[in-house]
Structure formats: structure tokens, C-alpha cells
Amino acid sequence: MSETTRSKQRLSDVVAQTLQDEILGLAVGERLPTEAELAERFEVSRTVVREATRLLVQRGLVAVSPGRGMTVAAVDGSVIAEQYGLLLRLSEGSFEQLMELRLVLELEMAALAAARRTDDHLAELTRLNERLQAADPSTSEFLDADLAFHEQIAQASGNPFFLLVMRPVNDYLSDSYSAGAGYPSEAGHTVQEHLEIAQAIAAGDPARARFAAENHLRRIVRHRATLTSSRQRE
């Protein structure tokens, strides 16, 4: 790599970091200076500004669109979640190891939800369970309601990092379960176990919520050969 290229990378990093510090204090949707204005401000070439912009887009901090230029994006962790989802698909980890991760996370997630849930959270958990009960287990509607229930528990926990982790995990599980012909046969257990988890959260009982979540997840581990495709079991 040439000295010029290394210099450009260092400059773009400096510009990106400076802009990042400023962006964190701005409102979502606020427009940032143009490429020409940034080049003049930092006394760098437009190439350096474009590279800095690319870095900010990768970090999920800005959006670039025709006519509006660069604007502040909502920081929702979607970029990190996307990368995490790719890592799950590319890794050599097994379904059982993914379930180990869920056991570590979701038991405490359910316990925290029981302690911190709001009326809105409880209403959404009820709605999702009603949707689950009404759906045909062989359709995507049932699977979507199943996974959305777990994301809502993450939401109710009051910890945004749980939701950041759960979304890509659920995307991975959606692919695994969709390819497994036996997933619908476990529907009755899923409905009942979700009801028990929701009831424990509604009761504000962390220990009971933790127990209900563990019972649900360990049943999935026991029946994983039924739930997932042969590809996922290899």
C-alpha cells in the first residue's frame, strides 16, 4: 500500500471521527454540510470526504440520498444486527450452541421483563399470544408471532442490548424453523409455554418468569431434531 493511500485512510478516519462526535449531538434527519463544504472545512480532497462518509454510513450514523445529501440517521443498531446475523450464518456453531446463547440471555431477559414491564408491554404480549393461538401452525404467521413474542420480552426488559442481540438470532431461527417440516407439530407446546411466560411477566414474578422461559427453551433443545432442517442438524 502506498504512502498516499495510507495518508488518505488516516485522514478519512479523522474526518469520520470528528463528524461522528458532532452527529451524536444532532437530531435525526438533520442535514449535514455538503461534500464540497466538508472538503473545504477539513482542507482535504473530496475523495477523503467520500471515504469518511462511507465509514459513517457503515456505522449506521448517516444516510445519503439524492437531493438531500447526507443526513443524520436513527441509531437503532441495525448495522450491528446485520453483521451479527451474517456471523451466525457463517460460523461453525451448532444449533445447540445457539440455544446455549438463548438460555444465557433469555432467562434473565424474562426476569427483567417481569420486573420492568409496562402496561403497553403486557398488552403487546397478550396480542402476540392471541395472534399465535389464532394462526395456522404451518404458516409463516405462526412463526412470525412466535419470534415476535421473544423480541417483545426483550423490549419489556428495558435493556436495548437484548433487542439488538435477539433480532438477528430470530432471523436465523426463522430460516431454521421454516426449513424444518416438524416445526408445526410443536405448536401446542409453544402456545402453552408462551402463555406461561406472559402470565409470569404480568404477575411481576421474576423467578417464575425465569423458570417458564427455561422450561420453554429446554423443550426446544430436546426436540431440536424435529424443529430444524437436516442442514441445520449437520
Rank of each mutant, 00 (worst) to 15 (best):
S2A: 11
E3R: 13
S7V: 03
K8R: 12
L11Y: 07
V14Y: 05
A16Q: 02
A16E: 04
Q17L: 09
L19W: 00
Q20S: 14
Q20A: 15
D21C: 00
L24E: 13
R31G: 04
E35N: 10
A36G: 04
E37K: 13
E37D: 14
A39L: 01
A39D: 03
R41K: 09
E43D: 14
S45G: 14
R46L: 07
A52R: 03
L61S: 07
P66A: 01
P66G: 01
G67E: 06
R68A: 08
V72S: 05
V72T: 07
S78F: 09
S78I: 11
V79P: 02
I80H: 07
R89H: 12
L98C: 04
M99N: 12
L103W: 04
L103T: 07
V104A: 11
L105V: 10
L107R: 14
L107V: 14
M109R: 11
L112S: 11
A113H: 11
R116T: 14
A123F: 05
A123E: 12
T126E: 15
R127N: 07
L128Y: 12
E130V: 02
E130T: 12
E130G: 13
Q133R: 15
S138F: 01
D144T: 15
A145E: 04
D146C: 01
D146L: 03
L147S: 09
L147V: 02
H150I: 06
E151K: 08
A154P: 05
S157M: 02
F162P: 01
R167W: 03
P168G: 04
V169Q: 10
D171E: 13
G182E: 09
Y183Q: 14
E186T: 15
H189A: 10
H189Q: 06
V191L: 02
E193L: 10
A200F: 02
A200E: 05
D205S: 09
R208Q: 11
E214N: 08
H216R: 02
H216I: 05
H216Q: 09
I220P: 00
R222M: 07
R222V: 13
T226P: 00
L227D: 04
S230P: 02
R231A: 14
Q232W: 11
